[in-house]
Design a protein around this nucleic acid. Sequence first.
DNA 1: TAGAAGCGAGAGCACTGCTCTCGCCATCAC
DNA 2: GTGATGGCGAGAGCAGTGCTCTCGCTTCTA
Lengths: 233, 233
Amino acid sequence: MSQAHTPRERARARTLEDITRIGRRHLATEGAAALSVRAVARDLGVVSSAIYRYVRSRDDLLTLLVVDGYDELGDLVDQRAGKVPHDDHRGRFLAIGRAVREWALREPATYALLFGSPVPGYQAPADRTTGPGTRVIAALVQVWEEAHAAGAVRDPEAPMRVPRKLAADLKRIRKDFATTAPDELVLRGVLSWAALFGCVSFEVFGQYGPDTFHAADELFERQLQLLADTTGI
Amino acid sequence: MSQAHTPRERARARTLEDITRIGRRHLATEGAAALSVRAVARDLGVVSSAIYRYVRSRDDLLTLLVVDGYDELGDLVDQRAGKVPHDDHRGRFLAIGRAVREWALREPATYALLFGSPVPGYQAPADRTTGPGTRVIAALVQVWEEAHAAGAVRDPEAPMRVPRKLAADLKRIRKDFATTAPDELVLRGVLSWAALFGCVSFEVFGQYGPDTFHAADELFERQLQLLADTTGI
DNA sequence: TAGAAGCGAGAGCACTGCTCTCGCCATCAC
DNA sequence: GTGATGGCGAGAGCAGTGCTCTCGCTTCTA
């Protein structure tokens, strides 16, 4: 981001921050589909058309909140993973998983915006969201990579047959993330990744039902352990 | 449902079916948040206020679609699971998982309505949705139960410590689903369940990114196999 | 200091969910 | 058969939405 120089530019940046903050608050109380430009304008003490000086459209406002959310989640994940020594691979994986769940429970509406059903008619612009959006998987890949490099990944009992087409995908992934992990580990990692968010989504979205798990913390902890086992770290 | 007797009641039932059908079509093309009572009315060739003779509110219309979706998914899952012999536990699990994915890819909007972010302000009425909404997990529980009864579940290497509070949850689940599976198996089953939907959601909601997996079928097949391994069947 | 550019206000358009009233007509009790 | 009941669709109307346009005011820039 280019620093603000003139007072006008600084005022503009401040207003944009205010809009993001108010938008996040509305997201939390009303939900994504009920997010209204007019309501944000009211809270900002301004008429609705004025918002369009800062935000091209309602979708553009959503993108602002999406990027903001990805960054917040990414920051927390990096911070928590950073507290665990690099050679404690399993501990780092657990820390990342717990960070994701903690943030999701704290910001359920933003979590829903990022990982729930896509908002209809809204297409997140790749150039602004893919960067922040890949921070969690990047952190996970780093853990597997380091575990693999350290020879700390348990070998599978029966190695998996990987068809050619899928192998090509995995090769591309290895290149994009600059990792050397073998096919089997990448596949187990991808499963852990999707499963982690599956568990968190089930809890945040209430799929377990209202009266099924009262010991949600303990449940999640066991799920994380099982996923670490599945990955082999 | 009580059968329709008078012509008037039959006409009413027909109109309700039409509304559901048109609603599902709009859901598919526009998405849940864009589902509009007025648009459904237009397609039905009727003025908007007339819809309210059949549906109490927009949320009530959503409930109609939710129940319809759960039933369709449940029917497909039951049908596919029914084709696999009862003693092929792993095969039944795979069939259920494939059925969920197949339906989700065919009806992404309805899948998003059921398993994506909750529609803001909309609370699904428990008395109408919990029944149809538990058919998939019920089918899965049956597989584990039969596998356990047949002694076909692989024992875990290191048994899990289950804290008292979580054990109470598991006890209640055992009672609700009339199963005798031990704590460890129930926990692994719940993980498989959440992970299965995590994988499907990642694919349907595009979380993998637009250019990551071209061999999505093969990827999902490996994920299912890994989940079956994790469950121990 | 004059022109350019940013900004907020207000009106307005087309849309939404939902309510209310008003007639029409099938159904039902007698 | 006839009169009362009640379901039904049409239409008007209210409050809200996203978004566009124009009009002045202010601030920055050359």
